[in-house]
Design a protein around this nucleic acid. Structure first.
Length: 394
RNA sequence: GGGGGGAUGCCCGAGUGGCCAAAGGGAACGGUCUGUAAAAUCGUCGGCUACGCCUACGGAGGUUCGAAUCCUCCUCCCCCCA
C-alpha cells in the first residue's frame, strides 16, 4: 500500500483495513476503499450470484461472510441474482461451455438462494435485485452502447478464454458477453464495492472500466480466496459433489468435515473461522473442533454437540443411531435385496445383492448371508447397510 | 460452400465382425486397517429371485448365422479451407 497523498480519515482507514482482512485482492487499493468509507454514506457492496446451482455451501459462505462484515459496519449488501445472465452461463474456470437454463428453473433457484443467503446475511441491510430487471427491457441500442465500451482484445485477455482459444476449444460469443453484462450490473446498481472469488477478478475489474466509461466512479474490487472442496483438490461446488451445504443436516455437515483431508483443515479454519486458532493439536481432535464450529454456525451449539455424539456412536463405535426410521414389512418371506431397495434406498436389487454378498449388510450385529428370510426373523431388528444406513424393521 | 475428425458404461478412454456387459484409469460402493485423514489391501461396479435371461456402445433402418465394430439415412459436436 502506497502512502496516501492526503491523509484519509484515520477511522475510515482502520475500517477499510479491517474489511480487507483475508481478502486476496483489494483494487485499486485499500486507500481507495478508505476514502469511499470516509465519504460517510453507506456503501453499496455488490455480490453477483449465479442461480444455476442454488444451494449455498461453505464456499459461498466465505464471500457471504465478508458481505456480512460490511453489513455489520453499516453498509448495504446488494445481491444481484443473475437471472438474466444465467441464461448465458458464466464461463469462469470452466473448460467447456455451459448449458443454458430455462427461465423457470432460474427463478426457482434464485428463490432458494435468497432464502439460504439470509442464514448469513442481515435481510434488513440486503437489497436483492434480479438483473432481468434491467436486461429484460434493454433494447439493442443500449446494448450496442455497452458493447462499444469494451474491446475484444480486453475480453480475450481473460485466462480461460485465452487457454481455450489456444487449445482450439470453443468460446461462444455469448460467453464473451458475460463479463460485459456483469459489469453493466455495477452501473445500474451504482456499486461502490464488488466482492467475488479470486476467479472473478477479471469480471470485477472490467466492471470498474465499464463504470468509468459510463461516467461514474469505479467500484472497489475485492476478492476472497476460493474454498477448496471436501476432496481437497477442486474448488467447492455442488456439481462436483465436494461440498458441504448450509442446509445439510448437522450430522451430515459434521461427518463431511471429518472426512476432509488433514491438509485442508488449516485452510478451512482460516477462511471460515478466522477468529479461532488454527489447528495445532491432534488432527482428529482438531477436525472435530472444526466440525463443531461449522454445525454451530448454522444450527447452534447444542446441535453441534449432538452431531458429534451421533458421529461417535455411529461412525466411531459402529452402533445404531439413537433415532432411526422404521420400515414395515409385509408377508412372510422377505427377499432381502428388495427390502434393501425399499427400506434403505439402495439403488437396485443387484447392488443390494452385492452388498449382501460382500458382507455389508447386517441385522443388529449379525451379518446377513441369505437372500431370502422369513419375516419373523426380521421384525424388531435393525437392518444396516454399510456403515451408515440404518432402518428398524417392524 | 468445400474437406476432414468424432459421438462407447458416472467421467476419461481402449476396442474396427464372433473369445464384448465391453480393456485400462478415475470416481463411487463394500470388507480389512484407521483418526469416516492420508497411505495400503481385497472385492464390486447395467438390470433381473440370476451358473441363465434381458437391455446396452448418439438415433432409425439394413447386410450377416452373428455387429460397438460393415452399409444407408438422421441428429449433435469439433477442426481445416473459402
Amino acid at each position: 500500500m502506497s502512502a496516501v497523498p492526503e491523509a484519509v480519515d484515520p477511522q475510515a482507514r482502520a475500517a477499510a483495513a479491517a474489511l480487507t482482512e483475508r481478502t486476496v485482492n483489494c483494487e485499486p487499493s485499500v486507500e481507495a476503499l478508505a476514502s469511499k468509507i470516509a465519504g460517510g454514506k453507506p456503501l453499496r457492496v455488490k455480490l453477483g450470484v449465479d442461480p444455476t446451482a442454488p444451494d449455498i455451501h461453505l464456499g459461498h459462505c466465505v464471500v457471504l461472510g465478508k458481505l456480512r462484515e460490511f453489513q455489520d459496519a453499516g453498509h448495504i449488501a446488494v445481491l444481484v441474482i443473475g437471472d438474466w445472465t444465467a441464461r448465458v452461463g458464466d464461463p469462469s474456470g470452466r473448460s467447456a461451455t455451459r448449458p443454458m437454463l430455462s427461465h423457470d428453473e432460474i427463478l426457482a433457484n434464485a428463490q432458494t438462494f435468497r432464502e439460504q443467503a439470509f442464514r448469513i446475511l442481515d435481510p434488513a441491510r440486503t437489497e436483492v435485485r434480479p438483473n432481468g430487471e434491467w436486461f429484460g427491457k434493454m433494447g439493442l441500442a443500449p446494448m450496442f452502447e455497452l458493447a462499444s465500451r469494451a474491446t475484444i482484445n480486453q475480453l480475450l485477455r481473460r485466462n480461460d478464454f485465452a487457454t481455450r482459444m489456444a487449445d482450439d476449444r470453443p468460446v461462444s460469443v455469448l460467453e464473451l458477453l458475460y463479463p460485459l453484462l456483469q459489469g453493466y450490473d455495477s452501473v445500474e446498481l451504482e456499486a461502490d464495492v464488488e466482492i467475488g472469488g479470486t476467479d472473478q477478478l477479471f469480471n470485477l475489474m472490467l466492471g470498474r472500466d465499464i463504470q468509468s466509461r459510463y461516467g461514474m466512479p469505479s467500484q472497489v474490487v475485492m476478492t476472497m480466496p476460493i474454498l477448496p472442496g471436501t476432496d481437497g483438490i477442486q474448488k467447492m461446488s455442488k456439481s462436483l459433489g465436494n461440498y458441504i451445504g448450509v442446509t445439510d443436516a448437522p450430522e451430515e455437515q459434521f461427518g463431511k468435515i471429518m472426512s476432509i483431508p488433514d491438509a485442508l483443515m488449516a485452510e478451512y479454519f482460516r477462511l471460515m473461522f478466522s477468529r479461532e486458532p488454527g489447528p495445532t493439536g491432534h488432527p482428529g481432535e482438531e477436525k472435530r473442533r472444526l466440525g463443531r464450529l461449522v454445525v454451530a454456525q448454522f444450527y447452534g451449539e447444542a446441535a453441534a454437540a449432538t452431531a458429534e455424539e451421533h458421529f461417535n456412536r455411529v461412525v466411531r463405535d459402529r452402533e445404531a443411531p439413537t433415532e432411526i426410521g422404521e420400515y414395515r414389512i409385509d408377508g412372510e418371506e422377505v427377499h432381502i435385496p428388495a427390502l434393501l431397495v425399499d427400506a434403505l434406498g439402495i439403488g437396485s436389487r443387484s447392488e443390494a445383492r452385492r452388498l449382501v454378498t460382500q458382507g455389508g449388510v447386517a441385522l443388529d450385529d449379525d451379518p446377513v448371508n441369505d437372500l431370502d428370510m422369513p419375516a419373523d426373523a426380521l421384525r424388531g431388528r435393525v437392518l444396516r447397510a454399510g456403515k451408515r444406513r440404518f432402518v428398524r424393521l417392524v
